[in-house]
Amino acid sequence: MNKFILEPTDENLERLKKIKGTKVYWHTADFFRFDSSIRDELSIIFDDYMDIFFEWKPTDKNEFSIARMIVKAARKNKISPQDYRDQFENYITVIWTPVCLWRKDEFGKISYSLKSNL
């Protein structure tokens, strides 16, 4: 499991749950974590990511440029590129889908769905 994702144990789910009317939900940021000290850098890379994938035609070259930005930022912050990438992916998840709905099936398996709002 990604070390930047908080395990959805019964204790964590109870401690972090939010209630709005009859709806129970969680903040995605509570489970999909990233270091707040690199938030501004993640935001800059995210802006470039959005340009590439929604305004330009995605190509291997464009995807490589995002990867290069991640590696450069990781080196600057003295963390592994994989850890930086995982935090970047969590940042994107939190930005696009700030609401998380956790469910437990009849076998006790926990799953989630991410939403942009309630």
Rank of each mutant, 00 (worst) to 15 (best):
F46A: 11
W96S: 12
L118G: 00
F32A: 01
Y112L: 07
V71W: 01
L16G: 03
F46C: 04
A73T: 01
M69C: 14
D47F: 12
E41R: 02
I92D: 02
W102C: 05
I38E: 07
K3I: 07
Q82K: 14
F53L: 12
L114V: 06
S116E: 14
I70E: 03
F88C: 09
V94P: 07
E41P: 06
I92P: 00
K104Y: 08
Q87N: 08
K17A: 05
D10A: 09
D47C: 03
T22M: 06
Y49D: 07
E7L: 11
W56K: 15
I45C: 05
D48P: 00
K57T: 10
P81T: 09
P81E: 05
A67V: 09
D83Y: 05
T28E: 07
D86P: 00
M50K: 13
V94F: 01
E7A: 11
T9L: 04
S113Y: 06
S43D: 15
Q87I: 02
K115A: 03
T28C: 05
T97L: 14
F32S: 03
W102E: 10
I38N: 03
F46I: 06
T97S: 14
L16C: 00
E41M: 09
K104A: 13
E14F: 14
K78A: 09
M69I: 02
I66W: 03
F54M: 06
T9E: 08
A74G: 02
E89V: 15
F88M: 08
K20L: 12
P58F: 06
F88H: 05
N90D: 02
A67R: 11
H27V: 10
I5Y: 00
G108F: 06
I5N: 09
A74T: 05
W102M: 11
